[in-house]
Each structure stands twice: as structure tokens, then as C-alpha cells.
Design a protein around this nucleic acid. Structure first.
Lengths: 207, 207
DNA sequence: GTGTAAGGGAACGAATAATTCCGTTCTACT
DNA sequence: AGTAGAACGGAATTATTCGTTCCCTTACAC
């Protein structure tokens, strides 16, 4: 609480966090919702980003960067090949990079730099996939693009609060990993299965 | 092309088909989009349904009915238990009932009757699940609610035209079925994996 | 004290969309 | 042939939503 500059620096982060939370929950959310969530006025947003689009581009760029980081970290893992691959998958699901990247596509105009980051991210993912197949732990008829779509399917799950959502995503990640691994096998599923009430509650929620 | 009455009857169906297509593609689509897709004026819609909400309720009801039909048909299958269960899963994915039901939730106010249909649908799904587990062909740590969420994940896939989308949905259904079946095994995946171009194209599509 | 960066939030203006309304067309029946 | 009215097309209406701008206030730095 020392000085306007410190407050501003704190707001930088507050706004980004709020934007992440709001836009991952609803990619079409109004910018006022971000300001409210951050507890700041609208002009605090416009002081930092010239437009909504610029903010979305920033978020997407951060998401791609995060994706790249997680993947590079997994590529550096020299241990058990399957565990390295599985850890990578869990890492991407945890980071929820899909909600910050492809799910936002269409709400803004992608920049050249975003394109370059996306290419790099794709290359790293392919490398990760290649390694697991070469080590004989990942079924070879699944391609890197398949993995990308599997991530999207898992990211489509949204139920209850953030923690419950994460728990369920890991549950289904574990399930699908059972059919990706060589040899296939059933492993214990983490987290409790959804309750009927959790599912039926959604009928009354405004979209 | 005989008479206004025949034309009107034809329009009944045209409008429903258009509504299904439009709202499964975008649950928040404007009603004018339905009219345009159907090739009729807006008043042709309002003559049949008092409001947008009424149309959505009708679509959802039809979707639940379809779900119930497919499930009852599968329950009537007395052949190989696994094949019956797998056929049921494929049937639901093909019918795309998820896009007409839970995906529309929040865009309208559910009626009592819809609630009853949903309960019935749930009961039938549970029966289907129970049978497969009892026959020892479905892993028992997966619950009916799990199956429901798996359907939703698969229904979240939307890539290219309708046929391509269907193809990919079956690809990932097959994949996840590998980890549902007792014993687990890898079976051939149907349909070609997504191309990189198919995935990257979405960056420019308006949401 | 005062200049100025930072911020709050009302006001503006441009969509977007549900619904209504009015004039037109075509059929069925006299 | 003439006409009542069902079925329609689509413009006009009205409400609402949102991105963006603007103006005024605050509080720190000097």
C-alpha cells in the first residue's frame, strides 16, 4: 500500500488474473465483468490495453507461452518414458492452456507472433509425442493432432467450482490414458465420479 | 406443391430441421438465423411457436425423446452384451442428442415435462450401464454419470463439416471404449486422424 | 501547493435480437 | 369470377448489451 505505482503494479496482475478467470469461464464475457472481478474501474483496463482485443491477444499469448513451458519441462524429463508423457498430459490439463488459447479463438484477430508461438507449441507437442511412441509406451495409431483434440475434450468439462472441475478432468484424463498406453490396462480413477445432482443442476443455470 | 396446407406442413418440418441445425451449431443463435436457414420468413416461425423459448423447449423435448428411443432400442438387444453396450454408445453419439439437450440448457426455462423426460432418460441410461457391468463387460468403477460426461466430451468436438465431425467423434468414442471394456485392449481407430490444417484453421474462424 | 499519473464509473453510440405489425399472396369455396 | 382468410415475408419497433470515450476525483512526487 505504498504509493500509486505499487498499487498500479498490483493492479496489473489483478487485472490479468481476473481476465483469465472471466474469459476461461466465458470467452464472450463483457470487459466490464473483468473490471468488476478485478475490483477496478473500466479505465484501469483501458489504461493498460487499448482494446478488448488486445487483452485477449495478451491472454492467448500467455497461454501459449505456458503451454510451451510445460512441454519443455516435460521434454527435459529423462526418467521413465511413460511417466514423462503422463506427467506432460497432466501438466497441460492442470495449466488449462486450452481455455486460454483455442477456446478464445474467434473472439480476436490472431497476430503474427501468436502464429509463431502456436507453431512452436505444435512442434514441441509433436516432439513429445514422437518420443513416447519411439519408447514404445504410446500407441502409435494416435497422432499429435489426436492428442490436441483429446485435450480439448477434457477442457470442455466444466462442473461445479474450479477444484471440482479439475478433479473431474483428471478423472477422465486417467481414463483415456488407459487406452493410450502400451500395454492397455485399467488403472484406478482419481476423484469421485460425478453425482447425479451435479449433472442435473445445470439445467437451471443460465448458460 | 399442392395447396397452402401442404406447403405449411412442409414448412413445419423445414423449420424444425433448420432449428436443429442452427442451434446445435450455436445454442445462442438468433431466431432469424433459423428462418433464413429454413428459407422462410420470421412470421412462419412465430405462427408455430409463441416464442423462441417455446421452440427451444420443443427441440430439447425431441432430443430427450430421441435419447430415450435409442436407449430403449439398445436395451431390447439380447445379443452380445458388449456389442449391445457399444452399439448404444455409438447410437447416442450418432443421434447427437447432447447438442439438443444439455448443451441448450440455460437458453430456456425447462418445463415440468422436460424434467420428467430427463428423469426417464437417466433411468434408462442407468439400466443400460447396470446391464453391461453385470455382464462383466464394462469396468465397474465407471458410473452412469461418468458415461454422461463422456458423451458431453465427445459432443464438444466440432471440426469441419458435419460428416467430418461425426467421423472424429467416432474415432474418440472408439478410443475411450478401449478403456471402458473388460478386458482393456487397443482396437483399430476408425476415420483418419485430424490434419494439422484442420486444427489450425480454427484460429481464424469467427467463434 | 500543484502537476500529473491512475482510476472510477457515467454517458455515448453502435450493434444485436426478440417480437410485433402490416401489406401481400394464394387457396378454397361459393 | 369474386372473396374470406390462412400463411407469409420482412420492415419497424423496442429493449438490451457492450465496447469505448470522457470527465472528474484522488493522491503521490517534487
Amino acid at each position: 500500500m505504498s504509493g500509486r505505482k505499487a498499487q498500479a503494479a498490483r493492479n496489473d496482475e489483478l487485472i490479468l488474473q481476473a481476465a483469465r478467470a472471466v474469459f476461461t469461464a466465458d470467452p464472450g464475457a463483457p470487459i466490464a465483468a473483468v473490471a468488476e472481478k478485478a475490483g477496478v474501474g473500466i479505465s484501469a483496463l483501458y489504461r493498460r490495453y487499448p482494446s478488448k482485443e488486445a487483452l485477449l491477444q495478451k491472454l492467448c499469448g500467455d497461454g501459449l507461452e505456458l503451454y510451451i513451458e510445460v512441454t519443455e519441462r516435460a521434454l527435459a524429463d529423462e526418467g521413465d518414458p511413460w511417466e514423462a508423457f503422463a506427467g506432460y498430459m497432466r501438466g497441460i490439463v492442470d495449466a488449462d492452456t486450452n481455455s486460454l488459447t483455442i477456446k478464445l479463438a474467434g473472439t480476436f484477430h490472431p497476430t503474427e507472433e501468436l502464429g509463431r508461438s502456436a507453431v512452436k507449441a505444435g512442434a514441441l507437442a509433436t516432439e513429445m509425442h514422437h518420443r513416447a511412441v519411439a519408447a514404445g509406451v504410446l500407441r502409435p495409431d494416435v497422432t499429435p493432432a489426436d492428442i490436441a483434440l483429446l485435450f480439448e475434450q477434457i477442457a470442455s468439462i466444466k462442473l461445479g467450482d474450479e477444484e471440482r472441475t479439475s478433479q473431474l478432468r483428471h478423472r477422465y484424463l486417467t481414463l483415456v490414458m488407459d487406452s493410450l498406453r502400451v500395454p492397455p490396462a485399467h488403472r484406478d480413477l482419481p476423484g469421485p465420479a460425478p453425482e447425479d445432482g451435479e449433472l442435473s443442476a445445470r439445467w437451471w443455470q443460465p448458460s
